[in-house]
């Protein structure tokens, strides 16, 4: 057996050096290797992300000196109570939830046919082109797109020009404009997961359904829909949570309307009341956690 062993090439002379020693050490100590690899990313995750979030939570229990604007670190429940009982915060929370739900519904309704066409009808070449087209708007700045909608929706904008011959009018600036703009902004984030989900549905299942006499609608309802539901929910997580926290779009096209993000912004930027802003910021966090808790059993989180 030993005769079959290939002749060994002579090894290059060992160079003594820090890098050499280091790699030799790491090669024989897998745990040290792991620690070396993960320290920096974990530090990032814990300190920059988790601690920042925890600080936000803690800040909500502090208060602010109204004249000098300095934060006083005495524990108080005032902000939480204000946010929970103030009619302003209830109204704005409901409005924000309404906008986020409307945006999500609009996006899903738009995304389903587009994603279905991309995944099941289009030729592979067309498929690639469509994916690129869906992604293209993401390369433009968020602000540019929001301001573009501001001019589209204005009183002498292109929408007014298009619909006025038919007796229609632009909705002007307000909540409808906000819903339109946000739906546009988040549409790619909803199309892509649904497209990916539909791609995973084998064509053979559709054919089998057809062979067994299933027409288009029952096939979609009974075969396709249950299979892509997790993907649809994954898409809604994006549009819902992104809409919930938005304040720039509503500032640009929302007219005089406020959303939760605006209240946070004015409390940080104008009123300089960081503690109250943190307390308000907890509302969308709680809502999102609630939503994630509801959908976790559907397997949607594996589709993100």
């Amino acid at each position: 057996m030993t005769t079959n062993a290939p002749t060994r090439h002579p090894l290059p002379a060992r160079r003594a050096g820090f890098a050499r020693k280091g790699s030799a050490f790491l090669a024989t100590h897998p745990r040290a290797r792991l620690a070396f690899l993960l320290t920096a990313p974990l530090f990032w995750l814990v300190v920059v992300y988790v601690v920042a979030l925890a600080l936000l939570l803690v800040t909500a229990f502090w208060s602010v000196d109204s004249f000098t604007g300095e934060i006083t670190t005495e524990w108080t429940m005032d902000n939480i109570i204000t946010v929970l009982t103030g009619s302003l915060y209830q109204t704005v929370t409901l409005r924000t939830l309404g906008v986020a739900l409307a945006v999500t519904i609009v996006d899903v309704l738009l995304a389903l046919p587009i994603a279905f066409y991309m995944a099941k009808v289009a030729s592979p070449r067309m498929q690639r082109i469509l994916v690129i087209l869906v992604l293209t708007p993401l390369w433009a700045s968020y602000l540019v797109k929001a301001y573009a909608w501001r001019s589209v929706l204005s009183q002498d904008g292109i929408l007014e020009w298009l619909v006025s011959p038919f007796g229609g009018h632009t909705p002007g600036y307000g909540l409808p404009a906000t819903i339109i703009t946000l739906s546009y902004l988040w549409l790619p984030y909803v199309i892509l997961p649904i497209y990916a989900g539909l791609e995973r549905v084998p064509d053979s299942l559709l054919e089998a359904s057809g062979d067994l006499g299933g027409r288009a609608w029952p096939t979609i309802r009974l075969v396709v829909f249950p299979l892509v539901l997790p993907a649809i929910i994954a898409g809604t997580i994006f549009s819902f949570s992104l809409s919930l926290g938005d304040y720039i779009t509503v500032n640009i096209v929302g007219g005089a309307s406020q959303m939760l993000g605006n209240l946070v912004y004015t409390n940080v930027g104008a009123a300089n009341n960081l503690p109250l802003a943190s307390a308000i910021a907890l509302i969308p966090i709680v809502i999102i956690f609630g939503y994630l808790f509801l959908v976790r059993r559907t397997g949607a989180l594996d589709n993100l």
């Binding site: 302003l88 109204t91 005089a256 406020q258 209240l263 004015t266 009123a271």
Partner: peptide, 9 residues
């Protein structure tokens, strides 16, 4: 400031 947010609603 608080009243201003109330006014905007």
């Amino acid at each position: 400031t608080a009243a201003w947010q109330e006014i905007k609603g």
